[in-house]
């Protein structure tokens, strides 16, 4: 198209590459396992939020039930591994595929719902999923399943001695989610999604197939979130329904994007970098006084953001750019 646009896209790619290299070096200097744990979670939730952002930010279909796909990924990988000995790498892809299919099957009726009704439907469906798993004996029911520890192995993606492999996997995941978003931004789908979000009637009259766009966004989003869920299961090596499919995961995927800037390329990562360490720290320092202090912190942050900068923190950067022009 025009030059400034192509240049900006190239610049974004360069910035992302440099940030990746920089991030890859960090754990070589910071060896504290608690800090490494926070970094891993930050990258993971950054990736998850980036994936959530595809359906809810770009396509405008607010989902508060993405914990379902997260849980599906975690359960598929864990069950395939513990019951059939399938390496997690394959379980991960299987979980992604299953989630994408389920997202489309659920989208078929739900995408006919407009606005808030869609968001409410996603909450309800995720809760149903949670209840089903809680009552499924073969899958461990409410007790959950433990990953048998079989020693460090790349094939089984288990590492007891070092967190580094997990860190690099989470980093790769964040890169993939970012790159997929970057690539989709300037593709037919990216334009269709933004059109559907902004004005579905106009999109239709231009020839955008609104329903198919939403289905596509849901599938990509669910696939990536399920990969994140698989990773989480391998990382913590013990899952139960509440700890991978609870409502708090749906929130934790939405909040970084909302905080950083919904429907933007950098928003979810920026939001995760601020929100996740904050959550982890409040949980470990004031968590003893009762659960939910971290939730109060989110709530306050979201209220402040909604009042001061509804477009998210990323708006701070673009505002400055506009002013300098």
């Amino acid at each position: 198209m025009d030059k400034s646009f192509t240049e900006r896209r190239r610049r974004e790619l360069l910035v992302a590459a440099s940030l990746t290299v920089a991030a890859a070096l960090v754990p070589l200097f910071i060896k504290n396992p608690n800090v490494q744990n926070i970094m891993i979670l930050t990258l993971m939730f950054g990736a998850l939020s980036q994936s959530w952002n595809i359906l809810s930010g770009y396509c405008g279909q607010i989902s508060l039930g993405h914990a379902l796909y997260f849980g599906l990924g975690a359960y598929t990988t864990t069950l395939l591994f513990t019951k059939f000995g399938v390496p997690p790498w394959f379980g991960m892809l299987a979980g992604g595929a299953i989630s994408a299919l389920i997202a489309m099957a659920l989208g078929y009726p739900c995408f006919r719902l407009g606005g808030h009704y869609f968001a409410i439907a996603t909450i309800v469906i995720a809760e149903i999923g949670l209840l089903l798993i809680q009552n499924w004996e073969w899958a461990g029911a409410a007790l959950g399943i433990e990953m048998p520890v079989r020693g460090d192995s790349w094939l089984k993606f288990q590492f007891a001695r070092s967190k580094l492999p997990y860190f690099y996997f989470a980093l790769a995941l964040a890169c993939i989610a970012w790159f997929v978003t970057w690539w989709l931004e300037d593709s037919k789908w990216g334009y269709w999604w933004r059109a559907v979000k902004d004005n579905p009637d106009a999109a239709q009259s231009l020839g955008v197939v609104v329903f198919d766009s939403k289905m596509g966004a849901a599938a990509v989003s669910a696939f990536l979130v399920a990969i994140g869920g698989s990773f989480y299961a391998m990382y913590v090596s013990y899952i139960d329904p509440g700890s991978v499919m609870g409502f708090q995961f749906s929130l934790l995927m939405a909040l970084p994007a909302v905080l950083g800037g919904i429907g933007t390329l950098w928003g979810p990562l920026l939001g995760a970098i601020i929100l996740i360490p904050l959550t982890e720290l409040t949980r470990s320092y004031i968590g003893g006084s009762g659960r939910g202090v971290d939730l109060i912190v989110y709530g306050t942050l979201i209220v402040v953001i909604a009042l001061a900068r509804p477009e998210g923190l990323i708006g701070l950067f673009s505002r400055r750019k506009e002013a300098s022009r």
Binding site: Y191, W192, R194, D198, N199, S205, L206
Partner: peptide, 25 residues
């Protein structure tokens, strides 16, 4: 190509995005 009376633009998208949308049909 049909340009309706109310124009039906995408108000919150940039001019560039509006134009590019046309080319993705």
């Amino acid at each position: 190509a049909y340009v309706p009376e109310n124009r039906r633009l995408f108000p919150r998208l940039s001019v560039r995005d509006n134009l590019r949308l046309g080319s993705y049909l």
